[in-house]
Design a binder for these strands. Structure first.
Lengths: 196, 196, 196, 196
DNA sequence: TATGAATGAGGATTCATTCAT
DNA sequence: AATGAATGAATCCTCATTCAT
């Protein structure tokens, strides 16, 4: 039923259907037909609202990262000092983010990134921003040089736990994942406090 | 006259060509033609030495994991006590393992795993074995319960650093990655020693 | 409030947009969207003012031929005797007719004609009318039988020069084309005069 | 039935099927399926022997022009002086060239040329070569400047008669077409002889 | 009158697989 | 053992057409 102003609605619908399909069938078996069907629309509609399949995939990753970013920003807004690191960790393992739908798609996109400049770019931006956030949060408690190494370790650990989540279907609870990260950071901070 | 004993040679050639193609073009764009060409052979040959494309991919992942396992076993053979954790870490970041060819393919396979029982099975075995190795190596220095959490953290960190390696084309040196992991483990062990 | 009398305006707009699109993108790549866009209207509008794409194309060719015919009729009106042949030639190479927009579209339609009864019909009518005009103009100076052959040659030459115009983007000036035709006819008439 | 060395055979088959399809259905309705069917092969085969549809079309035009060229070269080989112009005319209206299959395809390609650099290039080469052949053949009988104009007229007339052939399905005999051209040239040569 | 949302058929293309040689 | 010819299903994409608003 054609109405005006459907664009934002349809785009959102199609992006959601894309993520659902990636989660269910994998990126390889995510076809425009499948996406269309999942959204209750025809295959051709993808090219009406997005340039083509690639553009839709790109937008889907964008939204995924935007949501995660929003989660981080929200939590950082109400945290100070080293609590900011905890906020970042919490955001990454919030129920809305650390969910199969997001995690599986995230993994699929990361696997494509080395061969897709557009995806690689989004990945790089996200990665750098996360690293920078962590370093800033640690900066007042830890010397910059060490903060950088710690940030690298924490970012890797977060990614590794997301990976685990995608691979070990549900065997890894957000809470466990969160604890491992908190523990990692706290040891670094504790060490520091002891030194002083 | 038919050459005898070509099978192991050809299989190895084709597996290598597969990994090379995945690294260069990605799993999606790795076709039997491309693999054949990379091995200097014809497209049809894959079905002669493997059941089909899927079987070849499966075997390629198997070899990848077998090589990593061998690296770990070799290093564990000459290490005792907590040194065994270091050996595991060293194995994962050895030049032969922490290389673009291996890391990119590894990521591609992991992304497929959630939708391929065969790949998922290999992944699970590898994952469990690594986890078990770490726990055993830590067991005499750390209580079992904590050892398990630490192993989870270390395994995640290793995976996260491999991911980083695949995504940040060469910006992450094996040595840096190794240091981050060693540091993580050493803090846990040091803490323990202090307690006692 | 519905605008009245838009029909002739819109139809003309759309026909012009069609010819513009054919000239710019070729008949194959002339889509209803493209035509609509060129006219500053929506794709669906074609079916409102014409039965469909094919009807619009048909009307576009009709207009093209009608304009050329008008040019011929105008010039014939003020010419007598063999001057009438010159008038026909002049009309065919008048700036308004011998222009890229018209010539390219004309060629595109001619290529379609063998597979479209409707276009073929228009083409046949135009062709016959031109031939008949030439024969009539020659009739008093040349025996009918020879006039027919000469008319065939002149008509072919005109078409061939239009073809050249479409293919040799602007390298052929109307004046040169005109001269070649005038020369052809004058030789026939001169010969005749000599004989008598 | 797969055999080795099929390439030249298949390529020729497919090119012939292409020309047949263009003649029968027009360039627009010439699909790879249709071509494959006409050749008794599957649609996919086009991409095995040619890069794609466009390449096949390009090769088809190439062959068309090559055949015409061969016809011209053959006849020029055994003609001297102004007879060479007659040889060129004869070649263009030889039964093998002035046939519906060739003429319709030729028209279809010419209509595409303004929007396809590759086709335009072939067209330009063919056109220039023909013009040059005519000028050379006339050069000893007519001053160069006039020879050029005459060549332009003759080339246009030949094209126009081909066009007529494509449009007036069989109503124009090769012999009539030939006569018109011969007459055109003879008048120019006769004039010249008279002058001297 | 006019839009643009939506469809679905049809097209080119890719590719794993089969198989005669 | 190895080739590469051939297939046909599956995919992305285009586009004329329809229709609710």
């Amino acid at each position: 039923m054609p109405k005006v102003g459907m664009q934002p609605i349809r785009r959102r619908q199609l992006i959601d259907a894309t993520l659902a399909s990636i989660h269910e069938h994998g990126l390889t078996d995510t076809t425009v037909s499948r996406i269309g069907a999942a959204a209750g629309l025809s295959p051709g509609i993808i090219h009406h609202y997005f340039g083509g399949k690639d553009d839709l995939l790109f937008e889907a990753l964008r939204q995924l990262l935007a949501e995660l970013r929003q989660e981080i920003v929200n939590r950082l807004a109400s945290a100070t000092g080293v609590r900011r690191v905890h906020a970042i960790i919490d955001a990454n393992f919030a129920a809305s983010q650390f969910a199969p739908r997001a995690v599986t798609a995230w993994l699929a996109f990361w696997a494509e990134a080395p061969h897709s400049p557009r995806l690689a770019r989004l990945q790089r931006i996200h990665s750098r921003r996360l690293h920078s956030n962590i370093v800033h949060a640690l900066r007042h408690a830890i010397p910059l040089s060490e903060a950088r190494t710690t940030a690298l370790g924490l970012a890797a650990m977060i990614d590794g736990l997301w990976l685990q989540c995608a691979l070990a279907h549900g065997h890894l609870t957000p809470e466990t994942a969160r604890q491992v990260c908190i523990d990692y950071i706290d040891r670094h901070l504790a060490q520091r406090r002891m030194d002083s």
